[in-house]
Amino acid sequence: MPLLELDNIVVEFPTRRGPLEAVKGLSLDLDEGEILGLVGESGAGKSITGAAITGLIEPPGLIRSGEVRLRGARVDNLPADKMRRIRGKEIGAIFQDPLTSLNPVYTVGEQLIDTMRVHLDLDQKTARQRAIDWLAEVGIPAPEARLDQYPHQFSGGMRQRVVIALALCAEPKLIIADEPTTALDVSVQAQILALLKRLCRENGTAVVLVTHDMGVIAETADRVAVMYAGRLVEIGDVKQVIEEPLHPYTRGLMASIPQIGIRDRRLTQIEGAMPGLRNAAPGCAFAPRCPRAMEHCHSIRPAPQDAGTGQVACHFYGETS
């Protein structure tokens, strides 16, 4: 049984002009210990998908239909208090900005100890020792002294390490990491990713890594899911998606990444912009920007079909191969 299953989820935000669907029927599975990259441009619905898994969609947004299952048990319809017990303990989360993710008026030690004692049956002393171990684990020098310091006494990269320790300290089986390195210096990004990857591998923690950075995905993920306008357009092993993308959108994404060593190659961009969420066109959402779009692309929405190591939603798959 997969660790996490998303079964045709639809996330909706009611507005004055009618409901807005941010995620329009998304299904995917995640195995224990697997790192899945969730990519797409801004507004594709990747962060909302992450929030749907943790049950932290900002009201009035809601999961209109579909199911989120953790080890086969539904978690999307749990009462608030039951879901709270799952958060942190079963499903952890890491957010984008380490500078604002930590409470400024409590020491990092207090925040770690609180989190562990909420979920694990620990006394103050054991919890404190474990907090020190966690700081050491995420690579903070002099953890014993650092434990009683406040977040403002840490640099950005160090704070993201603390955030990772906080997300992992109650030993969840799944982490939703929403752009965990976007706010950091490039030189620090790689370190943080390597750390996250190592810790998750060691503890057998699965990760949903939400990002728009293909470089991050290539470095970290086992599998990649590409989202476009609230839907999955392609999913597969990282090697396949990066080297032989099947969907024209993924191909466009890959062509827009500069590669060192390859000269005389113009960087390409995907013309146009992603359609708004209100777009109700019946066909493929990418069709207006797709270089290969045909008549039926605009009128019939392609269903996801098995392809290679995963799935792709495109009329041309099968025809071309």
Partner: peptide, 23 residues
């Protein structure tokens, strides 16, 4: 953000409101 993150760690509401937010 730090309240959202605390929520994501499963900190109970009472502690969230009267400890993390109040100070």
């Amino acid at each position: 953000d730090y309240i959202k993150f605390a929520k994501a760690r499963g900190i109970p509401n009472r502690m969230l409101h009267f400890k993390y937010a109040l100070k």
